[in-house]
Write a protein that binds this DNA or RNA. Structure first.
Length: 426
RNA sequence: GGAGAGGUGGCCGAGUGGUUGAAGGCGCCGGUCUCGAAAACCGGUAUAUCCGCAAGGGUAUCGCGGGUUCGAAUCCCGCUCUCUCCGCCA
């Protein structure tokens, strides 16, 4: 959520920042509502002050054994009605203002590249070379099926298109990856592991920025109004909702593996083969609550932590800095990490690391006290995949495939898998 | 799912209609004392919002929302969460 104070103070700055990401539109209506709201509050406060004064006097009379003057009571009854009217007015205005604010995305940081589409993203760096194999490389959907580790048809039988099942070496590979990633982030990068609910309340989805705007992408349980998380970012963001964190408690860094659920109605027809785009997948997510002045530097560290995973797995990757038009709703700056997949010959987005500045903190009301006795401030929040499992599995399968169709397990994973090769079926 | 109890400030805990944003205690911050610390003593210690350059002032908030009243932490209604017991269950 954007600060209404900022919009009031410098609407042109806000308008221009929003335009950079392709959000055009006037803020005049919002400012008008805000002005009316403040006027109504002022009048209401004045009336309440009068009523409080009169009530106090009546109280004193009563204490002295006298009755309340009827004309005053009559007048205050009227004042009370006016107050009720103004309260209703303020409430209506605030609802309208809130509804508008909830739909406005975060402002890109000034140093985010210009551009409205992904073509304007900037390749910040690359590690390794997109390799070509010296034999015909298979895409993972063929490889995995031939290895008997992914069963697409039976996934569909259970849950419909874009669901799959993994078994044997495949299931084990994923579990190994999850364990290894979590151990790396907790052991070497300083994150604390979390185990989280994957069904959350509506207001939790609002806090992270997924609702109200992106309801179409979410699965929802009607009976209890619970929402299935699209990423662990959602519950982690809300861990400290409505709290004021004490001085010296930042940064707080968390990592969590959860299933992620994405309806993605809009993406129907895209990437239908394999496990590149599915409705349910596992992801290891990194998350940081930090002091505002440190968030830019923390974003760089977050990206580095995700890159480390790629490097140790030996997966060629590149880091993209997203242009203003391509960063996500809550983000002020985003880097994507794309890993190379030799079978389908594509760079696959395996991580997206964002600095959400105070955008989510405002929505979820997460503050901290910079020093003892100081005024509370909103924290900054950052999130990044570390990493999303299916696309890492795609890259490992496709890049490490052998001429006979078997797949070599990356060295770092072997203590976790207990095998160093996914063998072909006999 | 059924029955009951309860949600007051960072924590504990008073308070059942009238200057109560809220006694008291603990904690925390500052000070006195001390070589220093502890103890003791003194003072301070919520958040939001509106007006204002500021100083300052107003208003709101005792789980949430409504109602009664000149006036509600206190009374009424609804919701929600927590706890206990029963039931069910991995």
């Amino acid at each position: 959520m954007l600060s209404i104070e900022l919009i009031r103070r410098d609407p042109e700055l806000v308008r221009q920042a929003l335009a950079r990401r392709g959000e055009d539109g006037s803020l005049a209506g919002l400012l008008d509502l805000d002005a009316r709201r403040r006027a109504a509050i002022s009048r209401g406060d004045e009336l309440r002050a009068r009523r409080n004064q009169a009530s106090r006097e009546i109280g004193q009379l009563r204490a002295a054994g006298q009755d309340a003057p009827p004309d005053v009571v009559r007048e205050m009854r009227e004042v009370g009605e006016q107050i009720n009217g103004l309260e209703q007015e303020v409430k209506d205005l605030e609802e309208q203002i809130h509804a508008i604010l909830l739909e406005l995305p975060n402002l890109p940081r000034p140093d985010v590249p210009e551009g409205l589409s992904e073509e304007q993203n900037i390749i910040a760096r690359q590690w390794g070379e997109p390799q070509t194999l010296d034999f015909p490389a298979k895409p993972h959907w063929d490889l995995a099926e031939e290895l008997g580790i992914i069963d697409f048809q039976r996934g569909v039988k259970l849950s419909g298109s874009r669901f799959y099942t993994m078994s044997g070496y495949g299931a084990r590979l994923e579990r190994a990856l999850i364990g290894w990633m979590l151990d790396l982030h907790t052991g070497e990068h300083g994150y604390t592991e979390l185990a989280l609910p994957i069904l959350v309340r509506r207001e939790v989805m609002e806090g992270s920025g997924n609702l109200p705007k992106f309801a179409d992408n979410l699965y929802h349980d009607d009976e209890d109004d619970l929402w299935m998380i699209p990423t662990a970012e959602v519950p982690i963001t809300n861990l400290y909702r409505d709290e004021i964190l004490p001085p010296d408690s930042l940064p707080r860094c968390f990592v969590s593996q959860t299933p992620c659920f994405r309806r993605e109605k809009a993406a129907a027809g895209r990437d239908t083969r394999g496990i590149k785009r599915v409705h349910q997948f596992n992801k290891v997510e990194m998350y940081k609550f930090v002091a505002p002045e440190t968030s830019d530097a923390e974003l760089q560290r977050l990206v580095a932590d995700a890159e480390e995973i790629c490097r140790r797995l030996g997966l060629p990757y590149r880091v993209l800095q997203l242009c203003a038009g391509d960063i996500s709703f809550a983000s002020a700056m985003t880097y994507d990490i794309e890993i190379w997949a030799a079978g389908c010959g594509e760079w696959l987005e395996a991580s997206s690391c964002s600095n959400c500045t105070d955008f989510q903190a405002r929505r979820a009301n997460i503050r901290y006290r910079p020093a003892a006795g100081a005024r509370p401030e909103f924290v900054h929040t950052l999130n990044g995949s570390g990493l999303a499992l299916p696309r890492v599995i795609i890259a490992i399968l496709e890049n490490n495939q052998q001429p006979d169709g078997s797949v070599v397990v990356p060295e770092v994973l072997r203590p976790y898998t207990g095998f160093d090769l996914i063998p072909t079926l006999a």
